[in-house]
Design a protein around this nucleic acid. Structure first.
Lengths: 203, 203, 203, 203
DNA sequence: ACCGACGGGACCTCCCGTTGTT
DNA sequence: AACAACGGGAGGTCCCGTCGGT
C-alpha cells in the first residue's frame, strides 16, 4: 500500500468527519444535531469518531472553523480573480450570496447560523463566531479601504461602518432567502448592496 | 370565589407559561431548551405544564406566535403614535432595533432566531415563521405604499423590494448587535436604514 | 386508597432504592456496580431512579450512609440490651461480627469496603467514610471509658488507642472471613478481641 | 545490536507494564482503573499493551501477583536480615507497616485491596487473593513455629490462629492508616502487635 | 514489538411524555 | 388544575478489544 495513503489515513478520516460535521451542525444547529446523526452521515461508529475528537463540543468548534474557512476561501478566491477594488467588492457580494446557497457546507451562512444559536446558549462558540465575523469584516474593510485609496469610491462614513452595513444586509438577505427557499430574494438584496457600493463611487 | 375568576385561572396560567416559554425558546432555541428548563422558569411541575399544552412542539409553536405578536404589538404601537408615512417608517426602524434589545421576549428577534434554526431542522416551525415574516413584510410594505401614495417618497423599485431590503438590513444588524453584545452596531445599521428611507424622499 | 400510603409513596420508593443500592454498592463497589445493576435490583427504570437521586455519586453517598446507619443501629441495639460496660463491649464485638455476615446490607462491613475503595479513587466518599468511622470509634471509646469509670477495667493506654485496636482487629478479621468464606475465622478473631477486653479487667 | 538485548526487550517492557498496572489497579481497583489509565501511566498505546496481555482481566491478575510478590520480597528480605525467631516476627510487623506506606506498589496492601474488591464481584481474582493470603499466613505461621520450637515464646493457641490474629490486626490497621492518611495509627497498631508477640514470650 | 484507527457496546444522564392522585 | 412518580428511550462519553501496517 502506498506510503502516503498510510501516513495520512487518520488525517483524511478526520477531515472527512469535519466536512460532514460542518454541514450537519450548520444545517441542524449544535443542539439539533446529535452524534448519532453524525454517525449516520459519516458511516462511522461512535468509537471511531471519538478517536479523533474528544467531545461533541470540541468537534463542533472545529467544524465551525472548517465551515467558515471553506466558505471564506471560496469567496476570497473569487474576489482575488477580479481586478479593481470596486470590482472586488461587487464580486464579494455575488460570491457571498452564491456561497449561502451552493457551498459544500450546506445550511446557509455558518456565521449567521452560529451567531444566532450561540449568543445566549453557547458562550464558547460565540467567541469563535466573533473572531470569524471580525475576520470577514476586516477583509471587507480592507477592500473598501483599497477602493478609497485608489480613488474609485469616496465614503461619507468610516470604512468600518460601511463594512458592517454590507455584512448586515447580506446576512439578513441570506436568512430570508433560506427561510422562503427563494434565492431570488437574496439576489435582490445582492443587487441592492452592489448599488450601495456603486453609489459611493465618484462621479 | 367568583366564577369568573375561576374561569380565567387556566388562561392566566397558560399565558404565564407562554411568556416564559417564548423567552426561553427564543434565547436557547427549540432544541437547546428543555421542558426542564421551562419547569424551572415557570416554577411549575411537568404535569402542570402538560395540562395546558399537548407537547413540546405545540407549546413551542404557540410560544413563537406569542413572541412575534408581543414584539409586533410594541412596534406597531410606536408606529401608530407617529404622524406621516415617512415618520412611521423611521419610527418602525427605531422600534425594531429597540425591541431586539429590550423586549420582554429576551434573546433577540424571534423571526430571525426561529428562521435560522428551523430552515433545515423544523419544517413545521419554518412555515410558522414564513407566515409571521410575511406579516411583518406586508406591514412595512403598506407603510411604504402609504408614503408613496402621499407623495412623501418616490421609489425606483417595487415597495415589496424595499420592504425586503429594510428587513434584511435590520435583521442582519440585530444579529451583529447581539453577537458582539454591542447595541451601537445596531444603532448604526438603524441610522443607515433611516438614511435609505429618507434618500427615497422627493426633492 | 389510604391517605398515609399516598403521602409516603415517594419516600417509600426512595428508601427501597436506597436499601437495594446500599447492598449493591457494598457488594460490588462504587465502580463495579452500575445503574443498570440497580435497575435490575429495584425493578425500576432509570428514569424512575433518577427521579429520586440526581447522580450515581450522590445516590452512592446516601446509600453508604444508609448502610452504615443500618448496621450501627443493629449493633447499638444489641449493645444497649446488655448491662455492664464490659458486657457491652463484649456484645459489641459479637454484634460486629454478626453484622458482617448477616446484615441486610450484604457484602461485608461498609466501612471497610468503602474505605478501601475510596482512599485513592473517590475523595468525596472517603470523607464520608472518615466521619462514619470516627463515629464508630467514638462510640467504642465511650464504652471503654464507661468501663474504666465503673472500675471494671483498667487501661495501660488511652481509651482511644484501645478503640483503634479493637476496630482494626475486627475489620481485618471481617476481611479474612469474607475472603475465605469462612465465618470461623471471624469468630476466632472475635474471641481474641474479647480476650483483649477481658485482659484489661482488674485482677 | 546484541541478540540478547533483543530477546529481553519484550520481557522488559512487559515488566514495566506490570509495575505500572500493579500500582494502578492497587490504587483505583480493578473496576476503577481503565486501560486508558494504564496507557497514560505507561506511555504506551493500546496495541502495545495488548501485545503482552490478552485482556484486562489477565493483565490485572498478573499485576496482582506482581504486587504481592514485590511486597512479600521486601518484607522477607527484612525478616531474613534478623536473627532470632521473635526478632523476625517483630521485624515482619514493622516491615508490613512500612510496605503499606512506602512500597513501590502504591495504594496500600494489595491483599486487603483485592480481597475487599473481589469477594463479591470477581471470583477469579478472589481465588488468586486466597492463595496469596495463605502464602503470607503460612510464612508467618512458620516464623511462629520457629519461635515456639526455639523456646522463645509459648503459645496458648495454635500457631495458625496467632498468625490469623496478626494478619487481621495489621490489615485492619493498614486500612485505618490509609483512610485517615495518618501513618501514626498504623504504628500504634504495629506496637500493639509487637506487644502481642512479646506477651507470648516465656517469663 | 509497537502504533493508530476503528468497531460495537455499556455507561451515566437527561429527555419528553403519561398516569394516578389530590 | 396542579403535582409527584415513573417509564422508556436517546443523548454524549468512554470502555475494552481487534486488526492492519511498520
Amino acid at each position: 500500500m502506498s506510503k502516503k495513503a498510510d501516513m495520512n489515513k487518520g488525517k483524511i478520516t478526520r477531515e472527512r468527519i469535519l466536512g460532514k460535521a460542518a454541514a450537519l451542525f450548520n444545517s441542524r444547529g449544535y443542539f439539533g444535531a446529535s452524534m448519532s446523526d453524525l454517525m449516520e452521515a459519516t458511516g462511522m461508529e461512535k468509537g471511531g469518531i471519538y478517536n479523533h475528537f474528544e467531545s461533541k463540543e470540541l468537534l463542533a468548534l472545529q467544524a465551525f472553523d472548517h465551515a467558515v474557512q471553506t466558505n471564506l476561501e471560496i469567496i476570497m478566491n473569487r474576489v482575488d480573480s477580479r481586478e479593481g477594488a470596486v470590482n472586488k467588492l461587487l464580486e464579494l457580494t455575488d460570491a457571498f450570496a452564491d456561497v449561502v446557497e451552493n457551498s459544500p457546507i450546506t445550511g446557509g451562512c455558518p456565521l449567521l447560523n452560529s451567531a444566532v444559536e450561540s449568543d445566549d446558549a453557547h458562550p464558547v462558540l460565540r467567541e469563535r463566531v466573533k473572531v470569524a465575523m471580525s475576520e470577514l469584516k476586516d477583509y471587507i474593510e480592507r477592500l473598501i479601504d483599497d477602493a478609497v485609496a485608489s480613488g474609485e469610491i469616496k465614503l461619507d462614513m468610516p470604512s468600518s461602518d460601511f463594512a458592517l452595513i454590507i455584512i448586515s444586509t447580506l446576512e439578513g438577505g441570506g436568512m430570508l432567502s433560506r427561510l422562503y427557499g427563494d434565492y431570488g430574494q437574496l439576489q435582490l438584496i445582492c443587487k441592492h448592496v452592489k448599488t450601495l457600493v456603486r453609489s459611493q463611487s465618484k462621479v
